[in-house]
């Protein structure tokens, strides 16, 4: 059960019959963005599993801000492949693809200055990483991208715009323009922000959405509110009034949860007035310690 939020009111127990079609997973390119620690990778993984389970050829693509991990394509499940991008390797692939002549490519890639450029030159790194999953999208039904943290993800999405304006007319310009076309198109690309019902992640999502609007006004962002706690059944007692002596732990546990639900509602209510994208998708808290278990549970939710 994925809860689709229709209005400002948050009723965790009354959402069971809501529209469960995951519109944010229909696009060819699904970019999952969010602050560190909000469950972005778990969600991307669950979404990729869910798509593969529906019989769609899916690539889960991890983009890290500074990984030099080996870039190996692995088959994870039926219809599901997974890869962590390596910027140096992406640069190599891009140059080789563009130059076509193998000896030329080998020549310049063997040059240390070029290796340095691929690694450290401003914009190049972001452009080749973005270019890689943009290119891969043609080989799969869906490419789900586990994007780096919000700031760097935005820098990456900015890069083709920068290249297009700085170097008009060059071969890279055409690629940049094509990338912009794909990313700006809501039919081809979904940008999914993940947040928790806490001040900082929500603030970051709002800022992200505003910056994306400025960059690509036509492609409205999605928002997944992750790990929402549900309200316990009330026991009909007002604990807040009883502040004189320490609460019994059983009551403290309930009171703590009630207060957290209230704080969560406050954040969601505040968000309702400010969020201008698609209605947020609400995902309940899943109390599992193992990452794999959480992925399976969210996958089940997405499929429902």
């Amino acid at each position: 059960m994925i809860l689709l939020w229709k209005g400002p009111e948050f009723k965790p127990y009354s959402c069971a019959s809501m529209d469960l079609t995951a519109d944010w997973l229909k696009q060819n390119l699904v970019l999952v963005v969010g602050k560190g620690g909000v469950g972005k990778s778990t969600l991307a993984q669950a979404a990729a599993h869910a798509l593969a389970a529906r019989g769609k050829r899916t690539l889960l693509c991890r983009v890290l801000q500074m990984s030099e991990a080996e870039q190996v394509l692995r088959e994870r499940a039926r219809n599901l492949w997974e890869v962590t991008l390596n910027p140096t390797e992406c640069f190599r692939e891009y140059v080789a693809m563009k130059l076509r002549v193998k000896t030329l490519a080998t020549f310049i890639l063997g040059n240390r200055v070029m290796q340095y450029l691929g690694k450290a030159a401003p914009g190049v790194r972001e452009m080749v990483l973005l270019g890689k999953f943009w290119h891969e999208r043609t080989r799969y039904d869906h490419v789900v991208v586990d994007m780096p943290s919000t700031g760097y993800a935005l820098t990456m999405l900015h890069t083709p715009f920068n290249f297009a304006s700085l170097f008009p007319g060059g071969p890279i310009y055409h690629d940049a323009m094509a990338m912009i076309g794909t990313l700006s198109d809501p039919v081809q690309t979904a940008i999914v922000a993940v947040a928790l019902a806490e001040e900082m992640p929500v603030q970051e999502s709002l800022e992200l959405a505003a910056k994306l609007r400025a960059l690509m006004p036509k492609n409205v962002a999605w928002l997944v509110m992750n790990r929402l706690i549900s309200s316990p059944e009330a026991v009909g007692l007002d604990f807040a009034a009883n502040g004189s002596r320490p609460l019994h732990p059983a009551l403290a546990a309930l009171s703590h949860r009630l207060l957290r639900v209230r704080a969560q509602k406050e954040v969601l209510d505040g968000l309702a007035g400010l969020w201008r994208g698609h209605p947020p998708v609400l995902i309940p808290e899943i109390q599992r310690t193992a990452e794999a278990e959480r992925v399976r549970e969210i996958e089940a939710l997405v499929r429902a």
Partner: peptide, 25 residues
């Protein structure tokens, strides 16, 4: 020996101007 040639080849991809800008920076 090599860097200039490599840069020139790279400019085929980036378009004119990128390398000069890069060097300046």
């Amino acid at each position: 020996a090599g860097v200039r040639k490599a840069l020139e080849i790279l400019e085929r991809i980036t378009g004119r101007g990128f390398i000069a800008e890069m060097l300046d920076f």
